[in-house]
Amino acid sequence: MPLITYRDALNQALREEMQRDPKVFLMGEEVGVYQGAYKVSRGLLQEFGDRRVIDTPITEEGFTGVGVGAAMVGLRPVIEMMTWNFSMLAMDQIINSAAKMLYMSGGQFRIPIVLRGPGGAAHQLAAQHSQSLESWFAHVPGLKVVAPSTPYDAKGLLKAAIRDDDPVIFCEGETLYGSKGEVPDGDYVVPIGVADVKREGTDVTIVAWSKMVSVAVKAADTLAAEGISCEIIDPRTLRPLDEAPIIASVQKTNRCVVVEEGWEYSGIGAQLAYLIHRDAFSDLDAPVTRVTGADVPMPYAKNLEHLATPSAARVVEAVKQVLYID
């Protein structure tokens, strides 16, 4: 299987879906001539022309609304958020229009839209450019939220998202774009709502998604050297959440650490902890423990940024804590 980047995997998915269905178009800031702020849309303007690859003014609320309207009458827009930080401007269209249209219209208007773009911290981008906001969207009924961690998952899930008839929030990882993995040429789909066991293990369950999977893997490697076996589960879809494999894993290992790049308060991990307490309470030998971003706006200084971001070392610490190892 070819080894390609996460960026190119997404590019393949876009290209293949645009070839497959003329109703699919890509819209956003700098997606065309500039070839994408993160070059995910490289070459698409050349292949599909400016009818289907559309540069917009900096009008997040505006062009998101344009996308939702187009979706109401049957088009399948893929809207690029340059980063999810800017989606705040489009929140009204996402939450009040896209997520509610089908319900409000009594099932008459589906919104088959994909809103995609990178999230999370990169390197010293400071407070307004470093946020992981997937829990915001996961809160909202009517939205689906996807956050792939590997090139394989990225391609398969983006194709699934484009074919899905509901609004999908597709969270990419800004620092994942250059990461490489095996991706088959041609068509395949990773279904939305299906988790994946990234590593099997016996002593502790680590739940992580997007960028945090690699942090978990790094921690698991360190722990393996100490004889501790970690099972890493990547939910891949955060809403709807594939609960069963997580519960089954915790029933096996009796403990769970959730690694989340975003803030702790009201994060996805809080929901996971609740689910585990609900369904695997008598299997727990330790409280579900969370490793999250620090509860502060992201600082700019490199050293502070490190402190504020989940690290493999902190995951190792948390695993030892739930294993009662000092």
Partner: peptide
């Protein structure tokens, strides 16, 4: 100093170039 992310910067290194 702010651009360098240092404590003596205008925002004590918490804002950086854009802030």
């Amino acid at each position: 100093a702010e651009l360098f992310g240092r404590d003596t910067g205008l925002s004590h290194g918490k804002g950086g170039s854009m802030h």
